[in-house]
Amino acid sequence: MLTTKRLKLLALPALMWLGALFVLPLLMIAALSFLKRGTYGQIVYQGTLDNYARIIDPLYGDIFLDTLAVSVLTTFISLVCGYPLAYHISRLRRSAQQVWLLLVMIPFWINFLVRSYAWVIILRSQGVVNTVLQSLGLIDEPLPLLYNSGSVLLGMVYTLLPFMVLPIYVSLEQMDRRKLEAAYDLGATPWKAFWHVTLPMTKSGVVTGSILVFVSSIGMFVVPDVMGGAKSALIGNVIQNQFLSARDWPFGSALSIVLMLLSMLLIFLYYRAANAAGAKEGAA
């Protein structure tokens, strides 16, 4: 018999990995955010709160708000598109399910950057869409499909949709179909049965998927970089710039910490709202 103590050893490799490569750098970032930047970008070991004070600048406030708006919208659109897809897959025969799940995951096999540039080829002025529309005579001028917030949203939803579909699919798969039959039996129309039984019973999948998509989109910088152009910078791009171009690591660290706290707060609020909705659903 394995004792609990020995079972704990099984978690050790993962814990060491996360400890060395995640917790430690995170603590370093937290420490950095309270230090000063020297004239040539070097770190001056002198405590300060200036980095945090700088964030209060409305410039950054606006970018934070933009980022939040894009992330919330991305999450919402992914949910609205992802749930029906997951539902559809879960109702298929086993073999068909495998094929559909494979299709959902195939984009992961291709490098993220490559996929983003593929979108550029499709959407740019001389891109696939515009060329086809022009040759059909439907438009005279190329449509501005790229380098705006719409294209950023498109890219984000495209990239993150699988993170929504998979957890919802799993929770739909785990749901006992007899519960749905019981709802029909008690007079619930298919729509009411979905609303009162299926959706509450798959809430865990919706919550997990939403958090995965939201957290991924709030720190996203590749998609806005490639598909958004200069005007659509999100907070992820600002942080990236602080570290790579501006060489202001302390300020970049402060932005990262604020971003992290903000997403933790939002996730906490989301959990609370989801639980309250569950309780209300039960009482309704």
Binding site: R178, E181, G187, V197
Partner: peptide
Amino acid sequence: YRRDMNMVFQQYALFPH
């Protein structure tokens, strides 16, 4: 859902939430 009869299921199928 429009049949005027009700069923008691094998594993009860109660709504857990």
